[in-house]
Write a protein that binds this DNA or RNA. Structure first.
Lengths: 230, 230
DNA sequence: TTTTTACCTTACAGATTTATAAAAAAAGGG
DNA sequence: CCCTTTTTTTATAAATCTGTAAGGTAAAAA
């Protein structure tokens, strides 16, 4: 499960350059060419990072930035901005719209990648201990790849483990099948939405083995969430 | 013998907060209010850890950091820095003066403690006696190049010995075939990933000779770990 | 009540991943 | 240089996982 990066860049040659290097560094990515598309793909593509050009047709980069930050669930989504001229830098800094970093064009792809990696590392670190995740009875150790319900070790396949991990990281939040698919499966695999049901079923089976309380909540016409539904 | 922590912080309210939580977590600690005092107490207090504020009167936090690192005997002393603003983060990272971690103010005391513990755990592991490694029934003497399961001497080829050593050093942690290859084999040898399977197989064969419990855990789509898998 | 929609459950075939064995290649020791 | 040990590759078997389809169930809408 490699990080997913949303690239907002209208200039084909630049976006190609970025894609190339993202791919080389094992990132998954989606390129869109304007701000509207960026915003509309947020909920479905579920990026871990956004590379955003300042000068794009339609909504300006800054406007896109603001709108992303306005959504509660993307408050911590790391965003790096591409700016054309040096003179723009000051503006961007002063705006302080929660930009994580910026880089001026022309840039070295290697530097862009380095920054993306640095920011991802930094932010994932600050998102607390990533090694042990605990929510009520559910516990996951990511380096050991073990999951527990209470004392009971859960025997999960890779996909079920990943889904549990994802839901646990975002406990109590509801995700659509599409969002789950996009988070868990590699980019551009074509899998039926209903497949998620099956994996949820398998996950539930193992989670609630001994007539325990079901802690995966189905939200009709919305999706699933990990939740002790009181 | 609880770990000793040197706290370098001029702000009384913050240092009080830190002390409180350190005490609650069974750490021993000494609070000093400037860099000079910190340096002069190093040799006498013999801390296992330093919490260092970036903004302190007199010598800056960074300068203190440098001077600590300049002394051979404190090359591995873990240091965590407190920084005031987000904007300082980049500087700190880029300095790369051997900082182990940093945390921005305001911070949750619980997070500070969590990080201190995490770093201590990490570093104490690496500072351990590297000559004799023991995990449950498995024992390795690296100097003599001998490995045992209980009393039984294990007859291992060089590669199997190295893999066992590596897995033992990082017991319970899952490593991919690629990681194992990169750790065990010299750089840039081109060896099939599947070769690891074969060595794991031989290692297992010798480890579990007498129908003993298999202590190498296969994690599908992830790798292997040395683990008494309960 | 009936109809519609969304979700659950199950079975299965095909795909993927890992285990094992055996042979070929390489490395080391005398 | 020959012999032994070790390493690597390759092939096949075994284990496990995956996605889909089909039928059942539950909830909402008509």
């Amino acid at each position: 499960m490699f990080p997913k990066i949303l690239v907002v860049e209208d200039d084909q040659s630049i976006s190609d350059l970025i894609s190339l290097h993202l791919k080389k560094n094992n990132f998954e990515y989606l390129v869109v060419h304007n701000g509207e598309d960026a915003l509309s793909h947020l909920d479905t593509f579920m990026p871990d990072f956004v590379i955003l050009d300042w000068m794009i047709p339609g909504l300006s980069g800054l406007e896109v930035l603001r709108r992303i930050r306005n959504k509660q669930e993307y408050k911590n989504l790391p965003i790096l901005m591409l700016t054309a001229k040096n003179s723009e830098q000051d503006k961007i800094i002063s705006f302080e719209s929660g930009l994580d970093d910026y880089i001026t064009k022309p840039f070295l792809p290697s530097e862009l990648i380095a920054r993306v990696k640095a920011i991802l590392k930094r932010t994932s670190q600050s998102n607390q201990d990533q090694e042990n995740l605990i929510f009520n009875e559910i516990k996951i150790n990511t380096v050991q790849k073990k999951a527990y319900r209470g004392e009971r070790r859960l025997n999960l396949g890779p996909t079920e483990f990943n889904i549990l991990f994802f839901l646990l990281k975002n406990k109590q939040r509801v995700f659509s099948r599409e969002q789950i698919l996009n988070k868990i499966w590699p980019n551009q695999v074509n899998v039926e939405l209903r497949t998620v049901d099956v994996h949820i079923r398998r996950l539930r089976k193992e989670l609630n083995k001994n007539e325990e309380k079901d802690i995966i909540r189905t939200v009709r016409s919305a999706g699933y969430s990990l939740d002790f539904d009181e």
